[in-house]
């Protein structure tokens, strides 16, 4: 079966002339959310459904994905871990700190953490990075999918506390959680402007694309934190 590595740890399988996004299953035999498992030459892959994952959609939208096998990732808005499980597959030598504030959802996420050695669960509000600063180390990548009106602020303060110099911020912006009436295009523009100049840290937006048809009214964005060279 033809297998192509699209980005570190992210694969495209050719099955019956259909292309399928997948990651290598870290825990062979285990399906996390009912996704298909495919074995090829002793390697088991897990199908990655882009319509259930903003990150998956970003891959198929040809974003440059800044994840490596040894990355340290801070994931904000982990929910029950659909996407986190694929990040965990990708980070064979890395670690993902998974922040989620709903206790009910965290219950499911913990079951995933019990199986996988590289996910650290944190039940906390992403608005309050001080509340988990005693746990989280410097991250190479912050991935955020919280669907909150103040998404940009949340990204900025977390970056300030936890993002490595030149680290990457990956953001999924849902226009409807910011304003249900205004046009998504306008909202996205404003959010990008905020990231570029609205906070005391600055980002350079590397890529931005809407995530349709996988997710309507969502913008995917990858940015890099600017380093002031004061010296």
């Amino acid at each position: 079966m033809p297998v192509r590595e699209l980005s570190s740890g992210i694969y495209e399988l050719d099955i019956d002339d259909r292309k399928m996004l997948a990651t290598k299953n870290m825990i062979p035999g285990m399906s996390v959310y009912g996704e298909r498992l495919i074995t090829d030459d002793d390697t088991e892959y897990r199908q990655w459904d882009p319509s259930r994952s903003k990150l998956g959609a970003m891959v198929l939208k040809n974003f440059d994905i800044p994840l490596e096998s040894d990355s340290i990732v801070l994931y904000l808005g982990a929910a029950s871990g659909t996407t986190v499980s694929h990040v965990s597959d990708i980070l064979t030598d890395g670690l993902v700190y998974a922040v989620e504030f709903s206790p009910r959802t965290m219950r499911d996420l913990i079951q995933l953490c019990d199986q996988r050695p590289n996910i650290i669960p944190i039940l906390a509000d992403a608005n309050k990075p001080q509340s988990y600063a005693q746990i989280v180390e410097k991250a190479d990548v912050i991935f955020q999918d919280v669907a909150q009106p103040n998404q940009a602020e949340i990204a900025a303060i977390n970056s300030k506390y936890f993002l490595e110099e030149q680290g990457h911020l990956m953001l999924s912006i849902k226009s409807r959680s910011i304003d249900t009436v205004a046009s998504p295009k306008k909202i996205f523009k404003e959010e990008v402007r905020k990231l570029e100049s609205g906070f005391d840290i600055e980002f350079e937006v590397l890529e931005r694309k809407e995530l349709d048809p996988f997710h309507e009214d969502h913008l995917g964005l990858v940015a890099q934190m600017f380093v002031d060279d004061e010296e």
Partner: peptide
């Protein structure tokens, strides 16, 4: 570091959940 931190955080999250 990873092993211990993971253990600690899973315990912490579980105890927070039981307090809800």
């Amino acid at each position: 570091y990873d092993i211990l931190l993971r253990d600690v955080c899973i315990r912490a999250a579980k105890s927070q959940i039981s307090q809800t």
